[in-house]
Design a protein around this nucleic acid. Structure first.
Lengths: 144, 144
DNA sequence: ATCAAATCAATTGTACACAATTTAATTTAA
DNA sequence: TTAAATTAAATTGTGTACAATTGATTTGAT
């Protein structure tokens, strides 16, 4: 009789990661709807707010997304007027993404989101900080 | 001059959750390929290995998935011969999912996956246990 | 200088994920 | 007791995600 204890859902690390990630994204939805952004578009804009201008390649590295995902996201954000896409003069392979004025203005409207999300999370600050630290440690040590 | 510190990617909790979740699922892929399962199909099978028989509704509650996601996953698993789908006699609205013999046998082949995944994660046991505990706490206190 | 290897964005194909709606069955309440 | 409300699965539509491939450009080794 084999022991399948390690195959129980409650013993996995992957499963609560997967569930928490999905549910957090779902909690963002009503807030992001007001900005006409999906979650993926939101984190893309967060990267752009920090950097003003990035190549698609750099964005992919920052966001852990490949071109198959980013290409349509960036085209959508361009259509919405939040970024511009243009080929690099230096290297025609590279696509430069730049924040537009509307994209910059959007940051003001997004400024209240982190606090609003914080109110949805009913955990004390110490636990949240530990969780944040361990997730980053996990990213740094166990990915790629 | 507004302070957008709270909008930085590195200050979000959602973003490392999202990245870790995706990257863990990606790490599973080569192992799950051998069983001809996707990650979503894998956690569905984990639930079935624990319960033998569940309604689609119960599965959705356990896995935090709605019928829009589960319906095609369950049809695929039925096509692969791992589960059977049949309407409940008591309540024709309800769909009963049962593990087949092939589905049961698959558990043996999956038994080595948790250990193989463990070897990919280069964090000490205490951190992993803390992470596991905090993710479950997060799920319990901050979702729905 | 030249051409093979590498790089980058885009495309293709498969599989979620979820909101919203639909359809059918069951339960509840007037 | 039957009409309204609820429940459950399926469907529809949109938007990721990612592996694999393609096509254009650049780099690097000879």
């Amino acid at each position: 009789m084999a022991n399948y204890e390690q195959l129980r859902l409650s013993n996995q690390l992957c499963f609560p990661l997967y569930v928490c990630s999905k549910e957090v994204v779902r909690k963002y939805k009503p807030l992001l709807d007001e900005l006409d952004l999906t979650y993926t578009q939101y984190i893309t804009m967060m990267a752009m707010w920090e950097h003003e201008q990035l190549s698609a390649k750099e964005l992919g590295t920052i966001l852990y997304l490949d071109s198959g995902t980013l290409t349509p996201v960036l085209k959508t954000l361009e259509k919405k007027g939040f970024v511009e896409r243009q080929r690099s003069k230096d290297d025609e392979r590279s696509l430069i993404i730049s924040l537009t004025q509307d994209g910059k203005a959007l940051q003001d409207r997004a400024a209240s989101i982190p606090e609003a999300m914080g109110k949805c999370i009913d955990m004390d600050l110490e636990d949240l900080q530990t969780l944040h630290r361990l997730l980053h440690k996990f990213m740094d040590t166990s990915i790629k």
